[in-house]
Simulated assay, not measured.
Amino acid sequence: MFINNFYNDKEIILAIQKDDKAAFEFLFKSYYKGLVGYITTYTQDIQLSEDIVQHSFIKLWNNRNKLLIETSPKNYLYNIAYNRYIDLYRKKKREGDLIKELCLQNLRSNIEENKDVLEKRIDKLKKIIEHLPPRCKEVLYLNKQRGLDYKEIAEKLNISPRTVEEHIRIAFKKIRIGFKENILLFFLFKKKLMK
């Protein structure tokens, strides 16, 4: 069989350069599984890895006349496969970034369209916060405006973290009752609330 005809990488490359399909098949059988395993460590997706590896072999065959005799076919294939993975990763990331940007633009336009409604909700939220008990209001301010965690607030106010948690719970409960809707509004506009 043809396997015995190849003793080293140089002979395999020379044969592939001469359009020897048997040499190419030998190369394919020798490296396909290992290459799929290698790329799967990056993609975590066997089907995608198989596509990338097949693309790599096709590229090698299409560029067979440009192969250098000093090149290791294994290294060449691994480099092609890795570069293909990186290209696909960057493309997917760009597409993901584009989708995020479109979502943000949609959210901004919805916010701008409903500016009056939004301002009324913010005013209502400010009033609810204004009517909270003083200590509850202070804890909420330190947590949401200043970004302190419960332990830091407890130390600053000389109270227990459990008491801080209770003040936050009371504040959220009053906000929920006041709005009878999702408390997400509070988090979206927390910077405008306590001015």
Rank of each mutant, 00 (worst) to 15 (best):
E152N: 09
E138C: 03
I46N: 12
R94A: 13
E11Y: 02
Y82L: 14
E181M: 04
F6E: 06
N158M: 11
E25M: 11
S30G: 04
K156C: 06
Y150G: 08
K191Y: 01
Y42D: 00
N158L: 12
D19R: 08
T41C: 10
K173W: 02
N62K: 15
N5K: 12
A171Q: 08
N83G: 06
C136S: 10
N110M: 11
G96R: 06
N114L: 01
I58N: 07
E11T: 11
L27K: 01
D51S: 13
K74P: 00
N106R: 10
K21G: 15
Q17G: 03
Y78D: 01
F187G: 12
K115N: 10
D149H: 05
R90S: 06
K33P: 03
I16S: 04
K191I: 02
H167Q: 14
D45W: 00
L35K: 06
L88D: 09
K93L: 12
E11R: 04
F172S: 05
K115F: 03
I159E: 09
L148I: 06
I52F: 02
F2L: 14
F26Y: 15
L68S: 14
D51A: 10
Q54K: 10
Y31S: 14
I175C: 08
L140K: 00
V139Q: 04
E113K: 15
I175P: 08
D51R: 07
K74M: 08
E11W: 02
H55W: 02
I128S: 04
F186S: 10
Q17L: 00
N114K: 09
E25P: 06
I3N: 11
I129E: 02
F28A: 09
